[in-house]
């Protein structure tokens, strides 16, 4: 077996992804992705819209199965798990959805209490303490009685984070935690991710296309494009990289190896034909 390129010893790797391929119908989405995510680190996965980042998280979380390749989380092969074993594993990892996915019929307090009520038998007074502690961590203790529809985008993101850490998972996957937030909220979320990682030792995977914010908080970064890993290294290394593809993404250039246009027939021909679309 190859040593992971980021120099991690084998049992130091929490999520081990080897040559994973995945297609939707005939369309390949991931064309051989290999990653090694170190225990206790914050790992960034960056890449353009539609390059398969969310798909990759769903593969790690076991809601999708790869066509080929291996996905190991804490030494357990995720695609081979039975539903019961998968649920056991999921109690130890959390996925923060792009949309937050709070339960709209439950208050903030009940949202955070939900996984605790489902998986433990804590008596009510202790449960209340635990929930309030989680809400305090994200700064929403005072908002406990609000319904999700009464929260701003940034607050909803933080509330979802409080729910994600309710069972103290070993790993949290964040899907686009920064999108649609103002600079201050971005900073708050970034700081939270870092703090949770340091104080609770939670391994974090941050999927984002926000280069600046993500590089700031991550220990290691992967850059995805076209279903493959285009570059990897510490954020500084990736930012210095000479690869044209990496340069284009990091500097936000509109055209380059990643074409601006969705594949199409010749422009002039398309415009001058008038009988059919």
């Amino acid at each position: 077996m190859n040593q992971p390129r980021n120099g991690a010893a084998k049992d130091d790797v929490l999520v081990d992804i080897r040559d994973v391929q995945f297609a939707r119908g005939d369309r390949p989405i991931l064309k051989g992705v290999t990653m090694a995510i170190r225990r206790g680190s914050v790992t960034a996965i960056m890449g353009g819209s539609g390059c398969g980042k969310t798909t990759l998280l769903n593969l790690i979380g076991g809601s999708l199965k790869p066509d080929s390749g291996a996905i190991l989380v804490d030494g357990i092969s995720v695609p081979d798990l039975s539903t019961n074993d998968l649920f056991e594993l999921r109690k130890r990892m959390a996925l923060l959805f792009q949309t937050g996915a709070l339960f709209t019929d439950l208050s903030l307090f009940e949202n955070v209490a939900f996984p605790i009520r489902e998986h433990t038998r804590l008596p009510e007074p202790i449960l209340r303490k635990v929930v309030l502690m989680k809400l305090e961590t994200v700064g929403l203790r005072g908002a406990r009685d609000l319904m999700p529809s009464e929260l701003s985008g940034g607050m909803a993101r933080r509330a979802a984070l409080a729910r994600a850490i309710a069972l103290e998972p070993m790993m949290i996957m964040y899907d686009e935690p920064f999108t649609g937030l103002d600079p201050i909220s971005k900073g708050v979320i970034g700081k939270l991710i870092r703090e949770l990682n340091q104080s609770l030792g939670i391994t974090s995977i941050v999927v984002s296309h926000d280069v600046a914010e993500t590089c700031l908080i991550s220990d290691y970064a992967y850059l995805m494009g076209d279903g493959r890993i285009m570059g990897e290294g510490t954020p500084a290394e990736v930012q210095r990289s000479g690869s044209e593809h990496v340069r284009q993404f990091m500097d936000g250039l509109p055209d380059g190896p990643v074409p601006y246009q969705y594949p199409a027939e010749a422009y002039l021909e398309d415009l001058t034909r008038w009988n059919k679309h």
Binding site: G61, S63, F87, E88, R90, K91, A94, L95, F97, Q98, T99, A101, L102, F103, T104, F114, P115, E118, H119
Partner: peptide
């Protein structure tokens, strides 16, 4: 349907809670 569209059901599954049961 709305719970599905807003990923609440998927979120539940990721929390190891079976939405069919819950």
């Amino acid at each position: 349907g709305l719970m599905k569209a807003t990923e609440q059901l998927a979120g539940m599954e990721m929390m190891a809670v079976n939405p069919i049961v819950r």
